[in-house]
Amino acid sequence: MGARLRRLRRELIVAALMLCLPALLLTLVQEIFVLQVLTFVFIFSIYAQSWNLAAHSGQFSLGHATFLGLGSYASIIAASRLGLAPAVALFVGPILPALAGFAIGALCRRLREAYFGMVTFGCTAIVQVLVVEQFGWLTNRWDGLDAPRLAPEGLPVERVAVLNYVISLALMVATYLVVAAIIRSRIGLAFVAIHDNETVAAAAGVSVVRYRLLAMGVAGYIAGVAGALNGHTLTRHISPGVFGLEDSIWPVLYSIAGGLGTPEGPILGTLLVRVFWEWALRRIGGFDSLILIGLMLALVVTALPRGIYPVFARATAALGARLTPNSVKQP
């Protein structure tokens, strides 16, 4: 019990930090471009967080773009066709990818690892065809849909950027707390149990199918929110290209680079990888920056198989120990 409480306290502090630091940055830097890069980081760390949660239950999805894209489409259609305010559509739309998560989870309930990955990837390819062909009348086929913006009319571009920044930040922190809470709870324990060894978990009375479905459903919802947020703030447009390989790969990279299994990992991973890439893109350009990212990631995984966060945590703990020399020795 004490451990859980300590974890809660730490999470709250981390959350507070995550709110304060970027807010501080906001007052210092008014450059729209920097705000937009960080807004992207906030939004995609929500997406990475969603993948991380599913991975926590042993479901390593390689088709997470399904949820990202469906969330965008549902929210944009709800806002532009059904007249919902974007702020509302943002939370209503993701119900679709949540349902898709349940469906895919059910479809794949007996599949493991590579099989699971391939089928989830396949689902993305199929969803793309369906969106373009069968639902083309609704989705405008390959042209895609323009998204109404989250910020109210009349607000100048600079203010819009700040508003998007703040909202994305708030949602990122909220997602962090929610996911941390889930991981900390009995549900999280069940996830770990299923991930570790399904047979043992089932023998211990854990309903494997139910928890797997729950994990994918919740992950689907969260990813859907990220997609909807992205559509209404940064891209202002959605097209079937979202159901490609790229958007399914990035959350995997961000989460693992950051540190799998921890709620802080995806955020750290997204921040470091994305900012590094933006920097490389401007300084080096095009192909070279992507090659560099690939090399960096290859190095990270061979040198730090557990991701950056554990190293980060250990380093900062060591730093903290040095800063308070007369503390009681830690057990």
Binding site: R6, R9, R10, I13, V14, L17, L21, P22, L25, V29, E31, F33, V34, V37, L38, L271, L272, V275, E278, W279, R282, F312, A315, T316, A317, L319, G320, A321, L323, T324, S327
Partner: peptide, 24 residues
């Protein structure tokens, strides 16, 4: 938690500043 907090602050601040400057 307090030690963790201090160290996290320092590290995160450093990162954000470097990030911000790097992409200007």
């Amino acid at each position: 938690p307090r030690l963790r907090a201090t160290s996290l602050v320092t590290a995160a601040l450093l990162i954000t500043i470097v990030a911000g400057v790097g992409v200007l």
